[in-house]
Write a protein that binds this DNA or RNA. Structure first.
Lengths: 65, 65
DNA sequence: GGGGAATGTAAAGCGTTCTTTACATCTGGC
DNA sequence: GCCAGATGTAAAGAACGCTTTACATTCCCC
């Protein structure tokens, strides 16, 4: 599933490790999400959306595959 | 995580099996979600939200635990 | 061109999400 | 009371989400 995580992270000037610590997940998890290796769990998706002040639908896009 | 799946399903007059077939998951999965035994995957959460014409945030509520 | 930070990737392991099969209970109509 | 549909639950197994450790690569900056 597509997402704009990398763009949102860079807007904050954060490294993947920075974002990981804000989300309480590992850096590898952030990397995997940005690279679309898998989708986050629903709780993590909510945490990401909240961190960036967006709706889940504005971060993750299920439609374009 | 809280959700209002059962209420939305009943508004449609659907059984758990009906909802399951609309979502292409098993009836046990619908039952488990309604009873809060686990959270859906992100793609399934999107499918549920879309089916009921709602945002993910209007079906699943992360805050009140 | 050397060095450190950032990023990409891999493997093993654990818990979660979802499946199938199967059975128990509850409900409502007849 | 009986029966059928709806719901709850269990167990075993496959696939996924996330962890830790570890190493390779890329990117700057000097």
């Amino acid at each position: 599933m597509k997402n704009c995580l990398q763009e949102l992270r860079r807007q904050k000037g954060w490294s993947q490790a920075d974002l990981a610590s804000h989300l309480n997940v590992s850096r590898q998890t952030v990397n995997a999400l940005e690279r679309g290796r898998y989708d986050p769990s629903l709780p993590l998706a909510f945490a990401i959306a909240r961190l960036f002040g967006r709706a889940v639908e504005q971060v993750f896009d299920p439609d374009p595959e």
